[in-house]
């Protein structure tokens, strides 16, 4: 299967659609994704949000900031592209085959749940060899769970975990959250 990218040429940013497709293809192989992947880049915004739709094809909608080299605005970062697509595809794989059937739809996840799932994805990405900065994800996790030892212990459990179900992930996250944390 070959990943497809839309648009094929970019007007506002210096991105390479072939490079995006090539990175997506590599991740599809490594992660054992069982269906085609289509990536749609919104180049009109520098924000960095990602949305994933799962059907016969996995469609990943990405805002251009998610693929951008922050050192060189409007230029593509291969590493950011790989990290963004890996997180999106890991979440998709969780939903398809990883015991996440009862997880809320993406739009219904709160910020605490999103942060916990991100940590679960990025921890696995690191073990796959994708370079990551754990402190970045710990900071986001603390913003959503609280700045204390309980939250940090929950972070460590999720970061090192494999094979969690949604219920297990949610239980660790809930136990690690301080009441009143901005979720």
């Amino acid at each position: 299967m070959t990943a497809t990218v839309e648009p094929s040429e970019f007007k506002f940013v210096s991105f390479d659609a072939d490079l995006i497709a090539s990175i997506a293809d590599g991740l599809v192989d490594v992660l054992g994704i069982d269906r085609p992947v289509h990536v749609i880049v919104d180049e009109a915004t520098p924000l960095a949000r990602t949305r994933t739709e799962i059907g016969d094809t996995i469609t990943i909608r990405v805002e251009s900031g998610a693929f951008e080299d922050a050192r060189q605005p409007r230029h593509q970062s291969e590493l950011s592209t790989a990290a963004t697509l890996a997180r999106a595809l890991l979440r998709a794989r969780d939903r398809i085959s990883g015991g996440f059937g009862e997880a809320p739809a993406d739009d219904d996840l709160d910020l605490r749940q999103i942060a916990a799932w991100e940590v679960y994805c990025v921890g696995r990405m690191e073990r796959l060899g994708v370079p990551v900065n754990p402190q970045r994800w710990k900071y986001n996790f603390r913003n959503r769970h609280g700045f204390n030892d309980t939250a940090d212990m929950a972070f460590d459990r999720i970061w090192t975990a494999d094979g969690l179900s949604w219920g297990e992930l949610e239980a660790i996250s809930t136990a690690g959250a301080t009441e009143g944390a901005p979720a």
């Binding site: 919104d42 009109a44 915004t45 520098p46 949000r49 409007r74 970045r136 900071y139 986001n140 913003n143």
Partner: peptide, 26 residues
Amino acid sequence: RSPLMASDTEKRPKANRLQPSRPDAS
């Protein structure tokens, strides 16, 4: 590019003020 001109503006919060409640706050 500008965050003010995104294609799905109807789904965005009207405020861009940097606060923890923003999904991209961190």
